Amino acid sequence: MSFTLATWNINSVRLREDLVLKLLSEQAPDVLCLQECKSPVEKIPTAGFEALGYTHMVARGQKGYNGVAILSKIPMVEAGAEDFASLGHARHIAGRLENGVTIHNHYVPAGGDIADRDVNEKFGQKLDYLTDMRDAFRTSAPKRAILVGDLNIAPREDDVWDHKKLLKVVSHTPIEVEHFNDVMTAGDWHDVTRADIPAGRLYSWWSYRAKDWDAADKGRRLDHIWATGDIKDAAHSSRVLRDARGWEKPSDHAPVFATFDL
């Protein structure tokens, strides 16, 4: 079975329902993983998605904050949800496709503005979330699995617009990158996007603060698609749909795609 998957921090699925429908209509991924849905599950506007063939959904939601959902054309059942770092946030949902592949959809905490857990509780929560992810994968090694989402870390020097300037900025600090890499190692996860696009600057997020985000191009690659070692070679055709950042009233994230032949 071949299927294309996309991941996108939508920054409110109800506010940007039209953008989700545009993506589903024009790009037609088989599976779409959304983060920061900012909606209780029962208020996610599913009718339009179902009309386009996305009749399967697993989700965790909460009013106004966080929230994750997986929409699929392919039959899918829920495969669990974890509350890493015991935050009580809707930040993870897993779905299992009919071919046995499990998709984990994560929205890792952003971590606030100060990269010091002693003065910034949010930064500590981010590190604790990643530590819990690492420990969970050490305890139960994932197989035939894909992990996607807004992981809120740009790990490589060419995942940010200026490595030296951002070394002390949350999302690119050495301690975050270390935690990020520890999670990857613990689960035998492999970066699908960079396997396909191994060199060059690559971003999936551009701040709303920029007057002209496209011209300034001060981006970061915060959104990721990983695969476990047993299926990593089945992945191909990775891309970032940069144009979506320029749609009307956009999310500050662009969708990231990959195709799997499994």
Rank of each mutant, 00 (worst) to 15 (best):
residue 11 N to L: 01
residue 13 V to P: 03
residue 18 D to N: 08
residue 21 L to P: 09
residue 28 A to C: 15
residue 37 C to T: 12
residue 40 P to C: 05
residue 53 G to T: 06
residue 54 Y to W: 06
residue 55 T to S: 04
residue 57 M to W: 12
residue 62 Q to I: 04
residue 63 K to V: 14
residue 66 N to R: 01
residue 72 S to I: 09
residue 79 A to V: 14
residue 85 A to E: 05
residue 86 S to Y: 13
residue 98 E to F: 14
residue 101 V to N: 04
residue 105 N to H: 06
residue 107 Y to L: 12
residue 112 G to H: 09
residue 113 D to H: 13
residue 115 A to W: 02
residue 115 A to H: 10
residue 117 R to P: 14
residue 138 R to V: 13
residue 145 A to R: 03
residue 147 L to H: 03
residue 147 L to A: 12
residue 148 V to T: 15
residue 150 D to Y: 05
residue 152 N to R: 00
residue 153 I to V: 15
residue 158 D to L: 07
residue 160 V to S: 04
residue 160 V to W: 01
residue 171 S to T: 15
residue 172 H to E: 11
residue 174 P to M: 12
residue 174 P to L: 03
residue 176 E to P: 08
residue 183 V to D: 01
residue 186 A to L: 08
residue 188 D to C: 10
residue 192 V to M: 07
residue 195 A to E: 10
residue 200 G to Q: 13
residue 200 G to C: 15
residue 200 G to L: 06
residue 200 G to R: 13
residue 200 G to H: 07
residue 204 S to W: 09
residue 207 S to Q: 02
residue 211 K to Q: 10
residue 212 D to G: 05
residue 213 W to F: 11
residue 218 K to W: 15
residue 219 G to T: 02
residue 221 R to S: 07
residue 221 R to T: 07
residue 225 I to E: 02
residue 233 D to P: 12
residue 235 A to S: 10
residue 237 S to N: 11
residue 244 A to H: 11
residue 246 G to I: 05
residue 249 K to V: 14
residue 249 K to S: 12
residue 256 V to H: 02
residue 256 V to R: 01
residue 260 F to V: 14
residue 260 F to K: 03
